[in-house]
Amino acid sequence: MKIGVLALQGAVREHIHLLNQAGAEATAVKRAEQLQDLDGLIIPGGESTAIAKLMNQYQLKEPILNMHQQGKPIFGTCAGLILVANQVEGLTEPHLNLIDIAVKRNAFGRQKESFEADLSIEGVGDNFTAVFIRAPYIERVGPEVHILAKMDGKIVAARQGTVMGAAFHPELTDDLRVHQYFVNMVKDSLVANSLK
């Protein structure tokens, strides 16, 4: 099972490290052709404006949308959450438009308000140390979207079918559980796609 981490900018090696530990073969992806033989994709934390510009510049949008249409799971963390959302506050157009959520950027404030807190995540478990860095949150979810976690009443993780998003950075801790959850999503999709 091969999972890519979009490596245009941001916390790439942390995701690769945790994916490998969770039993996947992880690889950094910068170019469209590298997306072809993947079974799943993580869009990491970083700066969403920078990642989005590079994604457009190097024609990565279409191949990522194709992956999604083929039923391959995609997981966005922090900046990645902003990229997969279908609505972003302050922007007229969404980036990838893969999940029916509205996201507010830097919603928890600037860096000095950045924090870590223990979170309960459905399907993952309790006491997950979640690191929020100039983090977004989800303001609205569509009827098909399943809420996975909330922080002080704000939605911070959600899933719709094969697409998952988190406002925090599971890659900044040694806790494998969120990555294990995503690896399991990819395993399930491989089974489901082989039955098609």
Binding site: A11, E14, G45, G46, E116, A117, F132
Partner: peptide, 18 residues
């Protein structure tokens, strides 16, 4: 918990490759 080592270093981790 604000201003922890992980939160402060994590901010720089997000700038990598940029």
């Amino acid at each position: 918990q604000v201003g922890t080592e992980r939160v402060k270093r994590g901010m720089a981790e997000m700038q990598k490759g940029g």
